[in-house]
């Protein structure tokens, strides 16, 4: 099967310029990225500020094109501008700040904006608006002004706006950084459901460790390179490396590691609250 996303030795260089426009330096933001994502996967990209993860996201949406190497999205070469529209329809993007992405005065009009621009017939637009708002659990707010919504709700409206364009993939660049705990949870839950029920490929870019546990596979970026990859369990078992890349591990894993250090015999790749408490209760019962 052809992978949905395939990056091969992908390089991106930003050039620094002086006041006259002469190039004064080169900044290698992506330095030889190799990634393959199958259709229907839920991938997380983890990395500190400045690791290159947002630059990578912009490539997936053809907002940036490779300096060297190649990137194929849904079988299309992103460096060929002829493919721009097709790539953006295959892979929709959700950004950090919900207020910068919502444009209409009423929720349902905002969601309909994308398909309208694509020239979808009116009847079909309304069908899609209804469907996508139901998918993100915002249908009852369809007549409201986005101004009256919370951050998490706005972000779900932004996701519905992408869904209405029927993408195969959604890229989310730190979608929860500005949200409160409940908003954060609702966005991640929505994304997970779209992945499972609608088979949408998800690329979640984040530095919240707890969100990464929702993904099937994790890439860790630092200095423009993929430094680690594996399932969340495999990656979080390597806590020292993560800390070296200015990241950390979930709180639950931290407790497990502290207990192991004290001599308690439990696995070192525990990720979830219930998982840890079950193991501990069993251990206690056996004594």
């Amino acid at each position: 099967m052809i992978p949905f996303i395939k990056a091969e030795s992908l390089v991106h260089e930003y050039s620094r310029r002086d006041e006259e426009g002469n190039i004064t330096g080169i900044n290698r933001a992506l330095d030889g990225i190799d990634i393959e994502v199958k259709a229907g996967d839920f991938i997380a990209v983890l990395g500190a500020n400045g690791s290159g993860k947002s630059t990578f996201a912009k490539h997936l949406n053809a907002l940036l094109v490779p300096t060297e190497g190649t990137l194929y999205v849904d079988g299309k070469d992103t460096s060929d501008h002829i493919n721009d529209l097709a790539v953006r329809q295959s892979a929709g993007m959700v950004f950090q700040n919900p207020d910068n992405q919502i444009i209409a005065n009423i929720v349902e009009e905002d969601v309909g904006f994308g398909p309208e621009n694509m020239g979808v017939p009116t009847e079909e637009i309304w069908k899609r608006v209804e469907e996508s708002l139901k998918n993100v659990g915002m249908y009852e707010y369809r007549k409201e002004s986005p101004n009256h919504l919370s951050g998490g709700q706005k972000q779900r409206v932004a996701i519905a706006g992408i869904m209405a364009m029927k993408p195969k993939c959604i890229i989310l660049d730190e979608p929860t950084a500005m949200l409160d705990p409940k908003g954060r949870e609702s966005v991640i839950k929505t994304v997970k459901e779209l992945n499972i029920h609608e088979n949408i490929t998800i690329i979640l870019i984040t530095h919240y460790m707890e969100e990464v546990t929702a993904a099937d596979y994790v890439y860790v970026m630092a200095d423009g390179q993929i430094k680690m990859q594996g399932t969340p369990r495999q990656v979080f078992a390597r806590s020292e490396e993560l800390i070296k890349y200015k990241l950390t591990i979930p709180e639950v894993t931290k407790i497990a590691l502290a207990l192991i250090k004290k001599g308690v015999k439990i696995p070192k790749d525990i990720l979830y609250v219930e998982e840890l408490t079950d193991i501990l209760l069993k251990l206690k019962a056996r004594q």
């Binding site: 990395g47 500190a48 500020n49 950090q96 950084a177 500005m178 530095h207 460790m209 200015k246 990241l247």
Partner: peptide
């Protein structure tokens, strides 16, 4: 600390 990585 909104938007900063764990080290930040």
């Amino acid at each position: 600390v909104a938007g900063l990585d764990p080290a930040g």
